[in-house]
Amino acid sequence: MPDAPLTDLQMKQAAERFGTPLYAYSAAELDAALSRVQAAFGDARIWYAMKANPNLTLLRRMQSAGVGFECVSLGELARAVKVEADGDHLLVNGPAKSDEEYRLGGDLGATFIVDRLGEVALLPPASRVLVRVNPGLSVSTHDHLATGAAHSKFGVRPDQLPDVLAALRSGGHTLRGLHLHVGSAIRDAGDFAAAFARVAELHTLTGPLEVLDVGGGWGLGADLHGIAARAKEAAASFGAVLWVEPGRYLVAQAGVLLTRVMGHKQTGRDFTLLDAGMTELLRPMLYGAAHPVQALWEGEATTSDLAGPACESGDLLGHDVTLPAGAVRGDLLALLEAGAYGAAMSSTYLTRPRPAEVLWDGTQWVTMRRRETAEDIWAAEV
């Protein structure tokens, strides 16, 4: 079984105290992930891709470590305001920004990441800008996560870049640099080398730049030092400082989703029934993500599918998962690497209250988000 960021005893105590389903995080692993990025990328500026997990407790921890925020919605900008982040620590990204997002980003003095030529006319006056480039590469990840592919909705094609640069100049905006993000959960480090090399070729169009932002998307077991070396070479071709935007890498391994066994059944498949499912963890259904699992009971090894409680055939958290046999109702299971896009993508479908989130700070459990109630869900309904 893989190791969890929390001990079995800590997970059992958390589940007993706060109930399940439950998101539980390790502060030590959050710190360790950030340290790994800092060690690999050195002086590169780090921006946290807030969409991975926007909990205010996590944002304040990132902010205290000097990390900036990449925001892709009005709500994420509001969270940045809530933690009192200033414009020098904010990036505004996204392919279809609203008028309100331009207005608030401009008021805060954030740097905008321009995603298409038509966006230049929508920018607030005298904006600071990075231009997102789509290198048109196939990468080793799920198609829904391949943001740098030619068919992706993201970024400016290299042949479109001269027109975007001209529009920025005529509009009175400041080009700070280029932005590149080719995907998430990328398995082959060679994909990054290919992308960095392709964007470095654009220096003949741009000349020297202040910034090269190479995004994130590194798989959790990636060779960060090797990736960083190639990124630094690309930045040097522009005479630019290097920026990176990790999201999942910083928080995924710090979090687990704790769930209890509700029962067992067999049809054409063997199913272990859980009290958590697609409403708590969407990634398996959305991306085909396979989360490591740690069972907190003992028995001979067997295989089973992990089925959630929703009346949806796709509500499965794992296929052919190796588990100890003999699980009984109430046994505890931990889905690992769930700190990113877990709680952030949870929903209230079926009027299921979203889970609580708690943090082990090294000495005690701290509540990051209380469990919702049914009343919370319908509070805005009229």
Rank of each mutant, 00 (worst) to 15 (best):
G326S: 05
L137V: 12
A240M: 11
W47P: 09
M262C: 10
W360S: 05
A327E: 02
V67Q: 03
D315F: 00
H142E: 00
P292A: 10
T204E: 12
K51R: 09
L56W: 02
V328W: 00
V156W: 04
A193P: 01
F41T: 10
A4V: 01
R45Y: 03
P135L: 10
R45G: 09
H89S: 15
F18V: 03
S304Y: 08
F192Q: 02
M278E: 01
V83N: 04
A28E: 14
T204N: 03
A228I: 05
G136K: 07
L180A: 07
D115Y: 14
F192Y: 13
A325E: 05
W47A: 13
T57W: 10
G148I: 10
L242R: 13
T174C: 12
M1Y: 05
H151Y: 13
R17T: 13
L108W: 08
A44T: 13
V72R: 08
K153T: 13
A65E: 13
P135V: 09
Q10L: 14
W243R: 14
L335Y: 01
M368N: 02
L130G: 13
E381R: 15
I377F: 08
A126W: 05
T111R: 11
V164D: 04
V37Y: 04
G118H: 00
M62L: 12
L336I: 08
L317N: 02
A96F: 14
Q294K: 15
D305R: 05
S313D: 11
V321W: 03
W378T: 13
A234S: 10
R329F: 00
A78E: 14
L306W: 04
D159Q: 09
R132A: 09
T111E: 05
V256H: 08
E76W: 06
R198W: 03
